[in-house]
Nucleic acid binder design. Structure first.
Lengths: 215, 215
DNA sequence: CGGCAAACGGAATGACATTCCGTATTGTAA
DNA sequence: TTACAATACGGAATGTCATTCCGTTTGCCG
């Protein structure tokens, strides 16, 4: 009754569409124009940086400007401001999830897990307003929690299980609870200034080491 | 940097100022004009009802209208929209807290506690947007959590302890945790449709009965 | 009653989100 | 390469609020 515009029609990032098997007779699949893709990237990048300094409440105008683009372009890619926010969050979740593989390949199990958890903390910490957005009831955010479960949870799981298997952290804790706890610590109403989240998470990590069995 | 107007100056509801000890020589203390008080009440009442149907995001205009008042009047009483919201929440917390005494006086300990918890649930449940507001970081809401602790917690405590003393509920649970749990159940991101909160709370209440000692 | 501080109402202002539409680009087919 | 149509763009225009301003009205006190 006092809501902003409704009817959303999502927009998918067609970037990595290597699926151009130009053989059989399926429709030409209209390729995304180069400039459009360029602007989309610039937009997401700009939004990310603006959100960090001005919060997710920053005006669309500011984001468009930072991206060197007109507001019209923003709305061409994201029907609603909330869709842009959701897209940025998704992309950051992806980046965070991908980082897991890198850590896993370059560090010992425990260090990889610790590194990733701090990385994750950094991701959540810069999201002033994420919790608020999640609670806002805006349908644009509906899939975000599911996306979290789909991307971040498995990424964490891999590192966690590896550390357990290597005997570097105790085996009597539930991985899912840890991830949830970290997220809660970072988004709590009672969050107490900068560094608080990091400290709590560090504590958690130390706790994980306690009582580990030898490898 | 992209914030709405700042600098707040709170407004106190001078309603029940029975403190007119018109004897000694303290300053005349400018009495609140009758119409002002009337409008303040109408405003809070109107806001409450509008929030229920349209959410806390309802335009100030709508509230003013429902109260039969001009927007200017709204802002005379509440410097910022958020102040109005906070005032409504406070007033509802008061009502909820006061209900405790009534239940305590008219029902046996356990029934009084159960009644109050459902009353409390009803209070939280109608607050679509409370959680969001709390997380918004707006300074107008800063005191709300403290107010919650000051008003609701003791009210609950009284009923809870009485029920424990009467042996009607188990004595091995922490009251504070129960209240927090109920609030969390009602405001969670994972809240699953209407009735969900009530069901969970009912479950909790049943749980409290389990293992009670005889009186 | 008369005066006036306090309180009103509601138009004016300013910040945004979102929409519209004329113009500029891109990819492509001749 | 050039001409075209499909796509994208930019940014002014519109509409919805929150909040401010100020001329008017109203309760209160003497």
């Amino acid at each position: 009754m006092y809501l902003r515009g409704r009817d959303r029609s999502p927009v998918i990032d067609k970037s990595d569409s290597q699926n151009s098997m130009l053989a059989a007779g399926d429709k030409p699949e209209r390729r995304v124009r180069a400039d459009a893709q360029r602007n989309l990237d610039a937009l997401l990048e700009a939004a990310k940086s603006v959100f960090v300094t001005a919060g997710v409440g920053a005006p669309v105008r500011a984001i468009a400007e930072q991206a060197g683009v007109g507001v019209g372009t923003v709305y061409r890619h994201f029907p609603q401001r909330a869709d842009l926010i959701a897209a940025v969050f998704r992309r950051e979740m992806d980046a965070c999830a991908d980082a897991a593989a890198v850590f896993a390949a370059t560090q010992p199990p425990f260090e990889a897990l610790a590194s990733w958890m701090q990385r994750f903390t950094g991701f959540i910490a810069t999201k002033r307003g994420l919790a608020s957005a999640l609670h806002s009831g805006d349908p644009a955010f509906d899939g975000l929690i599911g996306y979290f479960d789909r991307r971040l949870r498995p990424a964490f799981r891999g590192l966690f299980d590896a550390a357990v298997a290597a005997g570097q952290i105790r085996a009597d804790v539930d991985g899912d609870e840890i991830l949830g706890a970290v997220a809660s610590l970072c988004m709590s109403v009672y969050n107490d200034g900068p560094g608080h989240a990091e400290r709590m998470v560090a504590l958690l990590i130390d706790g994980l080491r306690h009582g580990a069995r030898a490898p």
